[in-house]
């Protein structure tokens, strides 16, 4: 937790659900974090966590399938130094009990995205997705 005052701000953006959008998600996050005045090192970590969550939507909720019209929405909010990042998508419903990372000492490709998210954020919570959304993931961190 830092003692820096961060700018209260909320912004959201929709992205097409495909791997090419991940770069755009990162650009969006960096722009918003500039406005919130988040320091550089933390910004890199937060961008990674958000990009991993977006990647999980592409990879798991949509199983890498081509979904030309499907959108995912990322909303970043900062209020009273509390950062909340919400994701909305209409992919396969996520069973939170099945979301887990691999054992970190069992070195093999894959299974690290969720680990990174959990390492970086204070809380990771799947909420009920209100129509038209199916999945609603919320990541929070006290700045």
């Amino acid at each position: 937790m830092s003692e820096t005052a961060h700018q209260d701000h909320t912004e959201k953006k929709a992205f097409l659900v495909n791997s090419s959008s991940l770069k755009d998600v990162r650009i969006f996050c960096r722009e918003v974090f500039e406005k919130i005045h988040i320091q550089e090192d933390l910004k890199d970590e937060l961008v990674l966590a958000i990009a991993e969550a977006a990647q999980n939507i592409v990879k798991h909720a949509f199983k890498n399938a081509a979904s030309p019209n499907e959108l995912m929405v990322v909303q970043i909010s900062c209020e009273n130094n509390k950062l909340q990042i919400a994701f909305y998508d209409r992919g396969t419903p996520v069973d939170p009990k099945k979301v887990k990372h691999r054992e970190i000492d069992n070195v093999k490709p894959g299974g690290l995205g969720t680990f990174f998210i959990q390492e970086i954020m204070d809380a990771v919570e799947f909420k009920d997705g209100n129509k038209p959304w199916i999945n609603h993931l919320v990541l929070t961190k006290q700045l």
Binding site: L22, R26, D44, V47, L48, A51, E52, Q55, V107, K108, P109, G110, L112, G113, F115, F116
Partner: peptide, 11 residues
């Protein structure tokens, strides 16, 4: 920048 997918390539 490298994410978990890039790390998987390294592994």
């Amino acid at each position: 920048y490298m994410d978990s997918s890039g790390i998987s390539v390294l592994i």
